[in-house]
Design a protein around this nucleic acid. Sequence first.
DNA 1: GTTACCATAGTCCTCAGACAAGTTGAGGAG
DNA 2: CTCCTCAACTTGTCTGAGGACTATGGTAAC
Lengths: 222, 222
Amino acid sequence: MTQVSRTPLADQAADLLLTRVRAGEWLLGGKLPGETTLAAQLGVGRSTVREAIRRLAGRGVLDARQGSGVYVTALDVPDEWGDVLRRADIVTVIEARTAIEVEAAMLAAQRRTPADLRAIRRALDARTLPGQSVQEHVDADMALHRAIVVASHNEVLVELFDGFVPRVRRTMIEMLRIRPTASERQDQDAHAAVVEAIAKRMPDAAVRASRTHLDALKAALS
Amino acid sequence: MTQVSRTPLADQAADLLLTRVRAGEWLLGGKLPGETTLAAQLGVGRSTVREAIRRLAGRGVLDARQGSGVYVTALDVPDEWGDVLRRADIVTVIEARTAIEVEAAMLAAQRRTPADLRAIRRALDARTLPGQSVQEHVDADMALHRAIVVASHNEVLVELFDGFVPRVRRTMIEMLRIRPTASERQDQDAHAAVVEAIAKRMPDAAVRASRTHLDALKAALS
DNA sequence: GTTACCATAGTCCTCAGACAAGTTGAGGAG
DNA sequence: CTCCTCAACTTGTCTGAGGACTATGGTAAC
């Protein structure tokens, strides 16, 4: 499900350059054509080419030296974790997220401290504050989910979850913009169910509530 | 004093912005001031600010959205994945691995192809070949688990699992050297149960068998 | 009251041109 | 031959101008 995504020219140019670098068009340490030449080749303005180069420079692929040229500093970018997620279908990401969160909910129900529970409850309330923009609502939602993962007291799970946040956040905002929340009330109830199970230290109930909620999300995105 | 300001203004601006982001000047998901405002603050031109933003976008810290603004997508460059796992307690890693594998087993039971099943069965048999060294046995074990994850047909889960392999493999080998497998027969049965559930397309049974097996492993390592 | 539409301001995106600053290599002076 | 100068080329920076998109608020119709 590839949604219409208006990718900026500079980003397209960056992707194009990266593929050419990976294809070995310029050797490691080799020099790219001048900015003006590249601009003509790609059919974009020089500033756009410069931004594309900057983007790749930020990832460690290219290095621009004033007066000299632009050089290739790395042929193969270590499969950046963010890239994998960016390329992946959102449904695939949600499934992986489900794996993390269901386990986290179970552990949270076993290990949560009173302080964890307070933080979770506070995040739950923040989800329904009036006068929120779409973005704020999504951020509040992510904060609640994160609080639950934190309560699992497993740093690896937290790290994994944090890796998902940018990708999921983007998609959620896009989706809610196109099709505003169908049943916010139902959504809040689903979240409350997870929180209650954690509060009452009921791991199985937490697993069920969490999975139900995330399966619904997955269905909405399919 | 500095000899010359060899670093381009755009790179200096990028570093400055990253510092301010890390300092928490803008919250995660927060919006930065407009390009013109930032240019005035930093005392550089607009295009320079744009290049700085591009650079940070390439690193996954910022995200520019046309018509809306520039947003913070990560407070810090994500820690190198391997480092996190190397530092983490092995039990913590096993818990995360449980999250991945239980979900993968469920999906595999739904989606496995005949070819997947053949590969899984082959890996299961390879676990018990006679005359294996400890290392070979562990590798065969990991291969089986990986085949199951692959059968989930979820590339993100596979990527996550592969990230775990080195850390888990090392610990397993150490453990088996110190205290040779107490009940290899029981272990093989546990694996067979998971495989059978996947073969018969029974997701719930796959979940139960997988969790039981991994909980036992966790207990053995605690 | 609710919804749909529209206008508007604010934002990022792209381009073009100009000049500054740095690097390189060729060719001349010694 | 060595060293110096200089011209050509490259990236760095700034400015100005539109274009495209987003978010917000008001207005009218239902």
